[in-house]
Simulated assay, not measured.
Amino acid sequence: MNAAMTVGTVDWTHRTGGRLEPCERRRLVADLARVHVGNAVGRLSVLAHLNSGRNAYVPAARLAPPDSPLTRAAEDAATRALPPTLLNHSYRTYRFGRALGELGEVEVDAELLFAAALLHDTGLVMATGRDDFTLTSARVARDVAEQVGLSTAATETLQTAITMHHSPRVTLAAGPVAYLLSAGAGVDVAGLRCWELPSATLADAVREHPRESFKKYFALAWADEAARVPRGRARLLRRYGAFTAAISLAPFQE
């Protein structure tokens, strides 16, 4: 299936504005069901002290953001666009995604992952009209990519990671940047796969980038996005994914 037909790619999002057809919605609902089952099993493993993260270790130095023209430009754009609550979420998303990649031995372009993490939610505060917010985020990413002379292929990787990140069950087949961006955001927003991470990794990320009432802020922002794009993935997550409850039950205080 070509990129314009694959739900979540930047080509698909441009073509559809992020609006799902009934058959696409059914496939994503099935993916959501699998996510719910995996989340339940993972949370039970934590309660039983059998989760893999309890014996895992990720050196903090491996999670330090890379320094390059791309990452500096992305950080500058994110800092100008995002309120502190979302900016800190973006930093935590990178750390959690990178940590899962380290544990899973997933080779990833850390610069692209960091840029995607810092920019993935810019559209949540900037988008207008009836298109999925990630389309606005992808445009911000394109501007950053053009600013630093990023290649066409790398720009497409960056943009698709952003437009795909809130689809249920983004797999490694979508590419390591998309896979780890989605995974990192899932940890921070809903606690997905938190059981795979060392407690120190979770605690360090929150200490360095405080949540600042993130749950309340994000639940309201997501409700606004779901109302703005009634046929989009944000609405699907709220309707079929109990997303507001998932946010509130994430294993973080706020």
Rank of each mutant, 00 (worst) to 15 (best):
N2F: 00
A3K: 09
M5Y: 01
T6I: 01
G8M: 02
V10Q: 07
D11M: 03
T13E: 12
H14N: 14
T16F: 10
T16I: 06
R19P: 06
R19K: 15
P22Q: 03
C23Q: 13
E24Y: 07
D31H: 11
D31Y: 07
D31G: 08
L32I: 13
V37R: 08
G38Y: 01
N39T: 11
A40L: 11
V41D: 02
V41M: 04
R43G: 09
S45A: 10
A48N: 01
A48Q: 09
S52G: 09
R54K: 15
R54I: 13
A56I: 05
V58L: 09
A60H: 14
A60E: 13
A60K: 12
L63C: 04
L63D: 04
L63W: 05
A64H: 15
D67A: 13
S68L: 03
P69H: 02
L70Y: 07
T71P: 10
A74S: 10
E75M: 11
D76K: 13
A78G: 09
A78V: 04
A78M: 06
T79G: 13
L86N: 10
L87D: 14
N88E: 14
H89K: 08
S90W: 11
Y94W: 07
Y94G: 06
Y94R: 03
R95I: 03
A99F: 01
L100R: 04
E102A: 02
L103A: 06
E105T: 02
V106N: 06
V108M: 01
D109M: 05
E111L: 02
L112S: 11
F114G: 01
A117T: 06
H120V: 05
D121W: 05
L124I: 09
L124P: 09
L124V: 11
V125W: 12
R130I: 03
R130A: 11
D131S: 15
D132N: 14
F133S: 14
T136V: 13
S137R: 10
V140N: 05
A141D: 07
R142Y: 08
D143A: 12
V144K: 03
E146N: 12
G149Q: 06
L150V: 06
L150C: 08
A153Q: 15
A153N: 11
A154M: 12
A154P: 13
T157C: 14
L158D: 10
T160D: 11
A161T: 06
M164C: 10
H165Q: 15
H165G: 04
S167H: 14
S167P: 00
T171H: 09
A173D: 15
G175W: 11
P176Q: 09
A178V: 02
Y179K: 03
L180Y: 04
G184E: 02
G186P: 02
V187P: 05
D188R: 03
A190F: 06
G191T: 03
L192N: 10
R193H: 11
C194N: 08
C194W: 09
W195G: 05
S199G: 08
A203D: 10
E208D: 14
H209T: 08
P210W: 11
E212T: 12
F218R: 05
L220P: 00
W222R: 13
A223M: 00
A223C: 00
E225D: 04
E225T: 00
P230E: 00
R231Q: 09
R231V: 00
G232P: 04
R233D: 07
R235L: 00
Y240W: 13
T244N: 14
I247Q: 09
I247A: 09
L249N: 15
F252H: 12
F252C: 07
E254D: 15
